[in-house]
Design a protein around this nucleic acid. Structure first.
Lengths: 207, 207
DNA sequence: GTCTATACATTGATAGAC
DNA sequence: GTCTATCAATGTATAGAC
């Protein structure tokens, strides 16, 4: 935090109202839904009037579009970081688990923004969907490549099922896993990958 | 179909508009969302005016409540049937697979009604949620019992994770699996259970 | 059981003062 | 950058004719 000027930010709610609007809206969209949340409700959450939102965003749709972009950026950055951490002699399971952990970390680290992709996305207006779909496709393609290289014995159709199932499990954790109360995301990722790799017998039974 | 009177139903769209409203609304809620679908749009889908809906249902919320109840009935009936089909000498994996198949069959057999529980439920008005939560809790409890009896080596917290993960996968199939184009739900259930039981190595590799 | 007509609230968004 | 005031559109729902 380099305070270059004398008028350094005094309040904890520093900076632009823009970011505060984004965060409040993302939270409300996640909990109540997009159509269910009015611009007045968003404004109320940040102690403003609805009209002020339109100084920062062209429309409610534009606000949602940016929220979705932030969510995709979070998981994409996490994927990049996990990829960079690759070690030459690691096993496929180790590499997969690092990526699963990275995805879960990004999911819960920016929950309101990433959850929008899981719960709100199916119902977003068509214009918003097309604005996000490229980023989403790119992220899915990276996972397809990852899984294909980790499990080369699977054909493309099997890779697809594994990828979509894995996403189904990982994204569902947003609804039922609480990192603060239940333990680390790394343990959860380990449980997922070891089950996917070796089955429940390994997890519940022997080693 | 006992046609007791001479004025038997001639058209394929027989009977009450009530059922037609339910099915059109369920379909629209699944695709567009609840708040995003107006009563006018529902009426248009069944060639009526919005006011006519209120002859059959007290409110839009009441219509959604009944859709959710139908969805829960479908999966509950399927669970009952799968339980009745239990054979004395079957393995845990066989019993589990029958239940997974039953759940998937019910999911896709009444897709609009069951999908409402997955995609729409998080955002339904509080009054609608409380009306459905009992049925949902009961269904979850049955799965908890089932998994606990099949895998007694798991502690309750592990059973919870397995149950919620399994639901995460199964419910996600509504988004990406097409029984008409991709093959039987029984094969999909088999892939899920064998992976859960023995890991990916079994599915993709050897036997 | 479906219609027309309408009441009434809420919505996304804009204009213009400060 | 936030406000007040306001508009036009759309929402759920009701009343009453047919």
């Amino acid at each position: 935090m380099t305070s270059s000027t004398a008028t350094a930010a005094p309040s904890p709610e520093v900076g632009d109202g823009r970011r505060r609007i984004l965060e409040a809206a993302a939270e409300l969209f996640q909990v109540r839904g997009y159509a269910e949340t009015s611009t007045r409700t968003i404004a109320e959450a940040v102690d403003m009037r609805a009209a002020s939102i339109y100084h920062h965003f062209d429309s409610k749709d534009a606000l949602l579009t940016e929220i979705l972009a932030i969510g995709m950026q979070a998981v994409t950055d996490a994927f990049d970081a996990a990829e960079l951490a690759t070690e030459p002699d690691e096993t496929g399971a180790q590499r997969l688990q690092r990526h699963v952990t990275a995805h879960l970390d990004a999911l819960f680290g920016h929950k309101a923004f990433t959850a929008a992709h899981v719960t709100v996305f199916p119902f977003v207006p068509a214009a918003v969907r097309v604005a996000s779909v490229e980023d989403r496709d790119r992220y899915e393609a990276r996972w397809t490549d990852l899984l294909g290289s980790i499990a080369p014995e699977l054909d493309p159709s099997q890779v697809r099922v594994v990828r979509l199932s894995l996403f189904g499990v990982m994204n569902s954790t947003l609804d039922w896993f609480d990192p603060a109360a239940e333990g680390s995301l790394d343990e959860l990722a380990n449980a997922f990958v070891s089950t996917l790799w070796s089955g429940l017998g390994t997890v519940g039974g022997g080693n």
